[in-house]
């Protein structure tokens, strides 16, 4: 019990610190850095939601880009001003029931989360009977289907042309507010009976079922929660960028999140948060590797893409040497699972 109070205190301190940092950042940093902070927040949400399925419940799912797409389009279509909609849909008019809708950011985000969660349940119900790589393939297929559907429904999504002029509501409070809510929610979930059930399923499905855990219910639940947060994060991203198109939600986007989850450690909350921030910041900070370097006496021509190589190397090293993730203190294998 005392241990729990201590972690609560640490969490509270982290929260206060972040609020102070955000206040200072908004005041003193330029828009470029603020953008990176926003992205970090969004990736924290995405990383945690993916970790909930892949890390805690042990289901290898690769459908995140699909859920993000659903959330992004929901927010885009719900918040976009009506005249802007007309401008965007110059090819084929938008479906009438969406043409005159314009709602605030919060209801739009909630709708994004709920629609994605609904789809998560819909997809999860049949697909979650599969295991391991079969599940990965099925969820990957689902994400592709979403993308293909969005490409072809011209009057709903404007197809390949994409949408622009989505209002930029996303700021550091939104992105980190959602991130903190996600952190709180996931830790709350994991501490409770659901979390225990999720982890039991991860460790051994047969044993878990023998203990009386309803496999199907818990798997679908984990899937639904994860897709809810993925949808919201997709919405935040759409609002941050101001423009989206179906090709944005390719499989590479899922892999970006998977990178964060693996670096942070499967089934690690704090690790995922740290990894999300570090990966997002490093992706920009390492840009100097792409540029030509002038050492005074010799000019090295930059090779575009060098910064991605760094991540690949780190990923290989982590997978080979530190499966627990980069930012986890080693406490011995058995106890570290129980800790969560």
């Amino acid at each position: 019990m005392r241990d729990k109070r201590r972690t609560d205190l640490i969490a509270l301190a982290a929260l206060v610190c972040t609020v102070v940092v955000l206040l200072l950042a908004n005041r003193y940093l330029d828009d470029y850095k603020i953008r990176i902070i926003n992205l970090s927040g969004i990736y924290v949400t995405l990383g945690l939601s993916m970790n909930l399925i892949n890390g805690f419940t042990g289901l290898f799912s690769l459908g995140h880009a699909g859920f993000m797409a659903v959330g992004a389009y929901t927010v885009a279509l719900l918040t976009m001003p009506i005249p802007m909609k007309e401008m965007n849909f110059f090819f084929q008019p938008i479906v009438p029931w969406l043409a005159n809708v314009e709602v605030g950011f919060l209801p739009a985000l909630l709708a994004a989360g709920l629609i994605s969660a609904f789809l998560g349940v819909l997809i999860g119900a049949p697909v979650l009977r599969l295991r391991d790589d079969y599940l990965a393939i099925a969820t990957l297929g689902f994400a592709e289907i979403i993308r293909v559907v969005f490409t072809n429904t011209q009057s709903l999504t404007n197809g390949a042309l994409g949408l622009k002029g989505i209002p930029n509501y996303t700021n550091t409070w939104w992105s980190w507010g959602v991130a903190f809510f996600t952190i709180w929610f996931v830790s709350f979930l994991i501490r409770g009976s659901y979390g225990k059930a999720f982890m039991a399923i991860r460790e051994d499905e047969v044993a878990a079922e023998a203990m009386g855990i309803n496999l199907f219910k818990h798997k679908v639940l984990s899937f639904a929660f994860a897709s809810f947060f993925a949808g919201i994060a997709g919405g935040l991203l759409a609002s941050l960028l101001g423009t989206i198109d179906p090709n944005m939600f390719r499989i590479t986007l899922t892999f970006n999140i998977l990178l964060i989850v693996v670096l942070g450690g499967l089934g690690r909350i704090a690790g995922t948060v740290v990894a999300a921030v570090i990966v997002t910041v490093m992706m920009e900070a390492l840009r100097f590797l792409d540029e030509s370097i002038n050492l005074g006496f010799i000019q090295l021509k930059g090779i575009p893409g060098m910064r991605m190589v760094v991540f690949s190397i780190i990923l290989i090293l982590v997978v080979l040497l530190r499966k627990e993730g980069l930012f986890t203190r080693l406490k011995g294998r058995e106890s570290s699972y129980a800790e969560n």
Partner: peptide, 20 residues
């Protein structure tokens, strides 16, 4: 600046060009 053929990176790249 490289934008990695990626929308998010493109926005970052332009923001970086302007601010930094």
């Amino acid at each position: 600046v490289d934008n990695k053929s990626d929308k998010v990176e493109a926005a970052n790249a332009v923001s970086r060009l302007i601010e930094r």
